[in-house]
Design a protein around this nucleic acid. Structure first.
Lengths: 157, 157
DNA sequence: GCAACCTAGTTTAATAATGCAACTAATGGA
DNA sequence: TCCATTAGTTGCATTATTAAACTAGGTTGC
């Protein structure tokens, strides 16, 4: 297999995000980190991926500022992997992925968990996209606009 | 490379979604379809991926009910690829990916477009996760609950 | 202090996945 | 009919992934 096409310099933010976290296993590693997993061995055991791949993925996520390393919280000499704010920012993507499966999966009975509000124990609402004035937007209600004008404003601000 | 681990039977809906649309290029193909692309050649030209890979990806997306084929709208003998409701359901995932990049990208100046409300031309709001009663939820405010009880209700409903 | 075990990788080998580029067959248009 | 376009198909070489063994440092119990 020749080298996969990189989306690193892509003008589209979707592609850029996929470049950062689109490798097989990356988003599941972040999912585990969001669930509180910190140690190499725990990631490896829970996910079941090859250790060399886990090493490469963790390295990449650290390099991209999604995870950071810190001394292990149990006082041992080991290191732990912790999410940064950038890493925690992946949460809505994971929610969206979850909710897509919940709604459209061929075999929804195979899904083992639901996402609930910790305080009330109630299922959360589906993600919704809103206009600035609060209108609910579907894919048909949005469009893409060149970012130039906005960038110009930022420069002067 | 040995066969990649499949998440097809995974109990986690995130993993199941990644199994369906997590291949390199798949989400970008769906993005293009959402933008109105229908023809093989157009997908290929706009994305720049290898034709054999595009063929395999389109086949998989059709097999999974994300895309469907239909006679070309220009009356020619060719086929077009159209999103199904399941395919259009991927939209929030793409929005989430876009918004993650917009917020955390190392080089936001490389992003060419913003997502705006077609009617007003204003940037859309960031996706938010809400509890049933409307409270805004962060990752720390949610938890996973076994789905069994809910499944039981569905069977009786 | 030492042996056994655990942890966090590292290394090797085999196979799938990917991109490149040429090729093929069907379709469209002059 | 001929040439260009479209939608793939094919063959090849390189990268990505898995499985499993290995390595070195750290921890624990005696």
């Amino acid at each position: 297999m020749v080298k996969r096409t990189s989306f690193e310099g892509d003008a589209c933010p979707i592609a850029r995000s996929l470049d950062a976290i689109g490798d097989w296993w990356s988003m599941l590693i972040i999912r585990e980190a969001l669930l509180g997993v910190r140690r190499f061995g725990e990631f490896q055991k829970r996910l079941g991926l090859a250790k060399n791949i886990l090493t490469v993925r963790l390295r990449a996520l650290v390099d991209q500022g999604i995870l950071e390393t810190a001394p292990a919280s149990d006082g041992s000499a080991y290191q732990e992997y912790l999410l940064t704010p950038k890493g925690r920012g992946v949460f809505p993507i994971l929610v969206a992925l979850r909710q897509w499966s919940e709604e459209f999966d061929d075999r929804p009975d195979e899904i083992a968990t639901i996402l609930v509000d910790r305080e009330k124990g109630k299922p959360v609402r589906k993600l919704e996209l809103h206009a600035q004035d609060g209108r609910l937007l579907s894919a048909a209600d949005i469009t893409l606009k060149p970012r130039t004008a906005k960038a110009g404003k930022r420069i002067t601000a």
